[in-house]
Amino acid sequence: MHTQTLALDRLDQPGARQWPRYVLTGLAIFIIGLFLLLPLAAVLIEAFSEGWDLYVQAINDRYTWEAIKLTLLVAAVVVPLNTVFGIAAAWMIARFQFTGRGALTTLIDLPFSISPVIAGLIFVLVFGAHGWFGSWFAEQGFPIIFAVPGIILATLFVTVPFVARELIPLMQEQGSEEEEAAIALGAGSWTMFRKITLPKIKWGLLYGIILCNARAMGEFGAVSVVSGHIRGQTNTLPLHVEILYNEYNFTAAFAVASLLAGLAILTLVLKSLVEWQQARSLERATQ
């Protein structure tokens, strides 16, 4: 979100008291510093507290590498699937009128308001040893819970809304006239999507993908329930952080955490860039 200073602050015209402004600005900076910047800095400081060598050693551990690989694998499956779903859902909801549209939108939002632990729990109930299909999958030699598929399912669940809820309001605001015009000029469905829709939504789509990716790589609660915490097999980076921390191996825990903090910083930077691009293209369109 982009903030702009109002050209003229009405409460701050000559004669108005200036102290509220300074007090409030000071308070805001203090809160942001104490609650947001300090923890971020602390992760890095703790990670390097025992020196560069120990940091490298912590990262360069076999189990850390396995965790990195698994985290990347999960994101590589989850993000494309949720992107396809997000585009389909947004196309359906923002471009057509049908009964049950509001209910569908709410259903898409639902995973956001459910505790991640519940997200894990429901997959245990369906695919766990005592679940509906759990024993069948296990007999086929394809266990889901305490295995990679379960981690992917739980992560899919918690990240379902990200792309869709970014695109729905965007596409609703853009309206469908350009797409109708393309069809009227003889374009086929795929051509219309590729040449008209996709260029129009690309920044919003990218924004949703960035946020979806951050959550997919960083999800802890839901994954924690279904993973089983088997080192080298079902341990994602966030779970690895937990294990190291609980073993009182703080330096290593913070070293691995610093990788995730780096991911968060990268996410924020990319997000700001996309917002900036989006604002620019919007400006161009409304000149």
């Binding site: 006239e177 350009e178 109708e180 015009a181 260029p199 129009k200 161009r284």
Partner: peptide
């Protein structure tokens, strides 16, 4: 179209 629906990009 009323608002022309030109392809902005």
């Amino acid at each position: 179209f009323q608002h022309y629906a030109l392809f902005g990009h």
